[in-house]
């Protein structure tokens, strides 16, 4: 019963998040600014793959088997690699003079990426401290933000190619 309440609550929260990100993505599409050199989309695809792979370990953890802690640790590891990898790429760009104030692409893309990264970070902290009873609810959160990142990368990639 508790699981049902919590999962319904989380699902509603994710609906709110979906509306929020939809509007930020629409702003990105609306402005369609040219992408800066060196955004490094191929390497982004690698990190995106790692984040998507973490949904598998999350799913295994949510099965609440004997090794659930191990699967949670793998999920946290993959998520951390994603954050550090993306982050270091952005830091390199920032040092090259690419900043949120630089162009409309930077404004919309980095706001989107930054807000998404914040959610992944919160997810990592939550995964590190939650008890096994909350793991299924947390899994919903994790699936959502992993898939959302795929959408963001596809939109950004399509936007900068077309």
């Amino acid at each position: 019963m508790n699981d049902r309440r919590n999962q319904l609550g989380m699902a509603l929260f994710l609906i709110a998040e979906a509306v929020f990100f939809l509007l930020l993505i629409l702003a990105f599409i609306y402005f369609r600014g040219p992408a800066p050199q060196g955004l490094g989309l191929p390497i982004s695809f690698l990190y995106t793959g790692l984040l998507l792979a973490s949904t598998f370990s999350m799913w295994r953890a949510a099965a609440r088997g004997a090794a659930w802690k191990l699967w949670v640790a793998i999920t946290i590891g993959l998520g951390a690699v994603f954050l550090l990898g993306q982050g270091s790429g952005y830091v390199r760009l920032f040092l090259d003079g690419v900043a949120i104030r630089q162009s409309l692409f930077d404004t919309t893309f980095f706001t989107l990426a930054g807000v998404h990264a914040l959610h992944v970070l919160v997810g990592l902290i939550a995964l590190a401290i939650i008890p096994i009873t909350a793991i299924r609810t947390m899994a919903l959160y994790w699936y959502f933000f992993a898939c959302l990142w795929l959408v963001i990368v596809l939109v950004a990639y399509a936007g900068s190619v077309v």
């Binding site: 609906i15 709110a16 998040e17 509306v19 929020f20 930020l24």
Partner: peptide, 11 residues
């Protein structure tokens, strides 16, 4: 509220 307030948050 679940559908509308996120628009305020985005703004």
């Amino acid at each position: 509220i679940v559908f509308a307030l996120p628009a305020l948050v985005a703004s």
